[in-house]
């Protein structure tokens, strides 16, 4: 198991190098550069040359890349072209905010999806199953920017309630922070809930018709034990896989929601970086997201071994 984890962590190296090259190339391909953004209408050839020299953009591309990666391996992700502030601490601050949003979204999604998915599989083709399936389909198919806008509109028109615009940290004021976070978390959560619900339902249905479930019932098992100890645990592998992928996607996928609710998370930071052609910011954010993705997947794979004794990595 330990060897397996080490091997998996080693695969991080080529993944991160590949991602960094891809980002570097893409950033070069986007029209416009950071200097024209900074100088605006005051741009002159002299000023431009001065800024390019200052940011290191006058050097050949290969050299730019290697000087960046040379610092990155020592843990130094450079400074923002725009603000001059070091990128890494800022990523950490932003990550904390995005992580809070992601965790809240997951909790909301699971609270909705798992019980309803299980219920719907047990009451197959009943009225409640139909309702659950329609709701799940809505959750999956309504784009979150649409539901976000509608919800904001709904709360403001119906209750004259407006979510706070200025972000307040979790530890500054818990109440206000929750007020800011709960609506976006609910929207992200409802999208996740849709697919988790559908996966739970189909996976449960698959397991419920297995012989061992009938055998457990034939032993005189209370339904609670049959469903949670045997059926749900056996059907949880595809659910855990799906949730793992969703958490990975959440890390980078909150861009739109963070923008709509003006939450200064990792997604918003990345987006600002891209629009300002702020290469160190974009590179740092994307690499960090890629890193999280790999780690979440590793965690999911390790979790499998706890769920199912037939799975082992040795």
């Amino acid at each position: 198991m330990r060897d397996y984890i080490i091997r998996r962590l080693l695969t991080l190296i080529p993944i991160l190098i590949g991602v960094s090259i891809a980002i570097f190339v893409v950033m070069q391909l986007i029209p416009g550069d950071v200097v024209s953004g900074i100088l605006g209408i005051e741009e002159t050839p002299e000023l431009r040359a001065m800024w390019e020299a200052k940011l290191g953009l006058d050097k050949p591309l290969i050299q730019q890349y290697f000087s960046w990666i040379g610092r990155a391996v020592t843990g130094d992700f450079g400074e923002s072209f725009r603000t001059g502030a070091p990128v890494f601490p800022e990523i950490m601050n932003r990550f904390a905010i995005s992580a809070e949003l992601a965790i809240l979204a997951c909790i909301i999604a699971w609270i909705i999806a798992l019980p309803l998915g299980i219920l719907s599989s047990l009451k197959r083709n009943s009225f409640i199953d139909r309702i659950v399936r329609v709701v799940a389909l809505l959750g999956v198919s309504v784009p979150n920017f649409a539901s976000a806008t509608l919800l904001i509109l709904f709360f403001s028109k119906a209750f004259h309630y407006y979510t706070p615009v200025k972000y307040v940290g979790l530890f500054e004021n818990f109440g206000t922070n929750m007020e800011i976070m709960i609506l976006p978390a609910f929207i992200l959560g409802s999208v996740m809930a849709g697919s988790v619900m559908r996966m739970t339902r189909s996976s449960m249905l698959e397991v419920l018709r297995q012989d061992y479930i009938k055998a457990v019932r034939a032993k005189g098992s209370p339904e609670r034990v049959t469903i949670f100890r045997h059926a749900f645990r056996n059907s949880s592998i595809p659910i855990v896989t799906l949730i793992g992928m969703q958490i990975g996607a959440l890390m980078g996928g909150t861009v739109v929601i963070e923008q709509i609710f003006s939450i200064p998370g990792l997604g918003q930071f990345t987006l600002t970086g891209i629009s300002q052609r702020d290469f160190p910011v974009v590179q740092g954010c994307v690499l960090f997201i890629a890193f999280l993705y790999v780690m979440v997947n590793l965690l999911v794979d390790i979790l499998y071994t706890f769920i199912d004794p037939r799975i082992s990595y040795s």
Binding site: D211, Y212, A215, A218, H230, R233, N234, I307, P309
Partner: peptide
């Protein structure tokens, strides 16, 4: 009343 089944391979829960 107890019951035994046709497929012993799938009659025990695989994860316990």
């Amino acid at each position: 009343i107890s019951m035994i089944f046709q497929e012993p391979m799938t009659s025990l829960d695989p994860i316990f």
